[in-house]
């Protein structure tokens, strides 16, 4: 639906027509679901997260100001719901490759020049579980901007507005997120998931 249609529909919902909310659900649920899948790694949790996000969107629809599209606002809610779920979940320990100071600017650890291995990366990226693990290990702001960009499809301008960032920060944070993701994928690819049978093996 167009922006105008969307706004008209939202007004109807706010004046008491609950059924008018349904097209907003059907139009946006797939991308929202993909977002949640990417963040949470399994479809059952993703469905729960999407349901919670839509209910939150409904109950706080009066807060939606209409500056952006409904989808942009919804993805933010999905992201927040997923982050809450992840916090409650037990997370795999991964060694952070970089430290960040208060600004979010990183002090990079020196890495060998042959750090970019596109072939290996392509292989790792095809493993959905590996992607989920790596995404889970990203700092929250990196994970958020990356999923909003790649799955939510938000433009840099929309990201800047939605996240309250300078355009330059959007650019640099996305690059930083992708770089970290590459490193995490390569790093975790070197050992398999914790398997007791490997313990006795020699080096």
């Amino acid at each position: 639906m167009t922006r105008e249609e969307e706004q008209a529909r939202i007004r109807r919902v706010l004046s008491g027509d609950t059924d008018a909310f349904e097209p907003l659900v059907t139009e946006n649920q797939t991308k929202a679901f993909h977002l949640a899948c990417r963040l949470l790694g399994n479809e059952a949790d993703a469905a729960d997260a999407v349901q919670d996000a839509f209910v939150k969107a409904y109950t706080s629809l009066g807060d939606f100001r209409g500056d952006s599209r409904f989808s942009v606002w919804l993805y933010r809610l999905v992201n927040n719901v997923c982050i809450d779920m992840l916090r409650r979940r037990k997370r795999q320990e991964t060694v952070p490759l970089q430290t960040e100071d208060g600004d979010g600017e990183e002090t990079e650890l020196p890495l060998p020049d042959d750090r970019w291995d596109p072939a290996a990366l392509a292989e790792r990226a095809a493993d959905r579980e590996a992607v989920r693990t790596a995404m889970a290990a990203l700092p929250a702001d990196c994970r958020e901007i990356l999923t909003l960009r790649e799955i939510g499809g938000l433009s840099y301008e929309e990201l800047a507005a939605q996240l309250g960032l300078e355009p330059g920060t959007v650019k640099s944070r996305l690059n930083r997120a992708r770089k970290k993701l590459c490193r995490l994928l390569l790093e975790t690819g070197n050992f398999s998931a914790p398997a007791p049978s490997n313990k006795g093996k020699g080096v």
Binding site: Q29, T30, F33, H34, C37, R38, E43, A46, A47, V50, L121, A122, A125, A126, R128, V131, E150, I151, R178, L181, C182, L185
Partner: peptide, 11 residues
Amino acid sequence: VTGAEADLPAP
């Protein structure tokens, strides 16, 4: 790495 999200299931 960017191609990774292409393989996502339908809800």
